[in-house]
Design a binder for these strands. Structure first.
Lengths: 118, 118
DNA sequence: ACATTATTAAACCACATGGTTAAATAAAAG
DNA sequence: CTTTTATTTAACCATGTGGTTTAATAATGT
C-alpha cells in the first residue's frame, strides 16, 4: 500500500541530503557521482536517495553512455505548495489575531464543542 | 540527534492523517476527541500524531479544564513554502523547456562535467 | 467516595528508513 | 580480453514510525 504522491513528496523533502540534492540540481542535470561528491556517505546511500526522489517524480534519470544524469522535475513541488497555500492566511500576521479571536468565539475554552446543537 | 525544524515539518506533513488534522484545525481549535472522531484509529494513535505536530510547531495545546484544545500554528508552513518557492521557476511551464535547453548546453549528455580529457 | 470522561503513557509489534559493505552490471578505455 | 569507471543490487543492521492494547492520570459529575 504505497502512499499518495503528496505524502511521498513531503516524505522525500523531509531529508536534508535529498533537499541538498534537489538544490544542486537547480543549476542543471548532474551525474550520480557529482551529486554524491559533497556528501559524506557512500554511493549506494546516494543511489537510494535518488530512487526516492525519482519515485515521487522530483527527478528523472536519462542514460548517457555509462552515466545516469539526474534532472530536476519540480512539478510535485507545485502540488505541495498548492496544498500549503490554503494556509497562507493563517501564517500572515495581520489576520492571525483576528483569526484566534474568531476561533475563540466559536470554541470558548471553557466548554469545547462536542455536544453543541446545530 | 533530532533533525532540523524544516525536516521535521516536512516529515509531519508526509502523513495523510496529520494533514487531515491540520485541515480540520483551519476552522478553529478542536479537542483531541473531536480530532480523533473522523479517523478509524485509536485515541493514542491520534495523540501521537498531535505530539508530532506539536513538536514541529504546527499546533499548540492549551488546557481548558479536562480538555486540551489544539490550535493551528501555520508559521512552520511559511518556512516550508519559502524553501519551495526557490523552485517556482522550475515548475512554471513556460520556462521549463528553455531551462532544459540551457542545462544541456552546460552539461551535454555525452560527456558530463568534471573529468573530461581534452 | 466513586464512576465517568478526556487524554496521555507504557509496552509491544510490524514494517519503513537511512545507512553500511561487498558484489553485480554495464559501458568505455587500454 | 582485461581493467577501469559509474552505478545499482543484495544483504544486513540500527533506529524510527505508525499502529495496537492496557493502564495511568486528571478533572468533572453523581
Amino acid at each position: 500500500m504505497s502512499p499518495d504522491r503528496l505524502s511521498r513528496t513531503f516524505a522525500a523533502l523531509a531529508d536534508p541530503t535529498r533537499r541538498a540534492i534537489l538544490t544542486r540540481l537547480r543549476s542543471g542535470a548532474r551525474t550520480v557521482n557529482e551529486l554524491a561528491a559533497p556528501h559524506a556517505m557512500s554511493l549506494p546511500a546516494i543511489s537510494k536517495h535518488l530512487k526516492v526522489l525519482e519515485h515521487c517524480g522530483l527527478i528523472t534519470r536519462g542514460r548517457a553512455s555509462r552515466w545516469r544524469p539526474c534532472r530536476l522535475k519540480a512539478a510535485p513541488l507545485k502540488e505541495a505548495v498548492d496544498w500549503m497555500e490554503q494556509y497562507r492566511r493563517h501564517w500572515e500576521d495581520r489576520l492571525d489575531r483576528l483569526e484566534e479571536y474568531l476561533q475563540q468565539l466559536q470554541h470558548p475554552p471553557q466548554a469545547p464543542s462536542h455536544e453543541r446543537k446545530k
